[in-house]
């Protein structure tokens, strides 16, 4: 455990909780892509199946359980409790365009051709692109609530910090996971445009709105 890994995990946790609180406090999931949230729930479910097969640490187990529970709670709030506020008309990204290539890639490029490994690899690849329905929704409506941008910032920051964590582990522990690093790079790059808007607009007190 190094500082990049820990702050990355906490940033991820912050993102998840910001989103849950935003929906809960405003009693609305307007502007939130339910599709992205379903994909994240799928990411956690397929990645954390090892909760049943191996124990790594109390920290590891607790964080995994929190992530999974929060992911399903978010999906429930969007498609259940606050369904009336869900903006399905703008959440029109075709997820099959992500899922099909990700499944194929996970079957073709993995550490071992075994069910658990393929599911883990699938989750890594899927996570890297799971935010696309959300970014697509923002580009379609041309704006995002400020709290939604904070959510996206922490979510993007998390994988960026993981990149530093992997550099650290490569140098100090001799660890290197090509699949995670490449997917993490892709994931971080997808946030770059958003980071730019966040820094130049949101941090200066302006709402995130895109030119028409």
């Amino acid at each position: 455990m190094n500082i990049f890994r820990l702050t990355g995990d906490l940033s991820h946790l912050a993102a998840i909780i910001i989103l849950l609180l935003k929906i809960w406090k405003t009693r609305s999931c307007a502007g939130i892509s339910g599709k992205s949230q379903i994909l994240f729930a799928l990411v956690f479910t397929t990645r954390y199946l090892d909760l049943f097969s191996s124990f790594i640490s109390l920290y590891n187990t607790v964080m995994k359980v929190i992530y999974i529970m929060c992911a399903y709670a978010t999906v429930y709030l969007i498609y259940g409790k606050f369904k009336a506020t869900y903006d399905g008309n703008h959440d029109t990204f075709r997820v099959e365009f992500l899922l099909i290539p990700v499944v194929l890639l996970a079957v073709l490029i993995n550490h071992a051709f075994a069910p658990m490994e393929i599911l883990w690899t699938f989750s890594i690849y899927l996570e890297s692109v799971a935010i696309l329905p959300q970014l697509f929704m923002i580009s379609k409506t041309g704006e995002a609530e400020t709290i939604t941008t904070h959510y996206l910032f922490f979510l993007g920051l998390y994988r960026t910090l993981y990149l530093f964590n992997w550099i650290w582990r490569f140098y100090f522990e001799g660890f290197f996971d090509l699949i995670a690093v490449v997917a993490g790079l892709v994931q971080t790059i997808l946030y770059c445009d958003f980071f730019y808007l966040y820094i130049t607009k949101v941090l200066k007190g302006k709402k995130l709105s895109l030119p028409a």
Partner: peptide
């Protein structure tokens, strides 16, 4: 290097 899976990460 093909690398190895970091099983302890989230």
């Amino acid at each position: 290097p093909n690398g190895k899976k970091m099983k302890d990460e989230l």
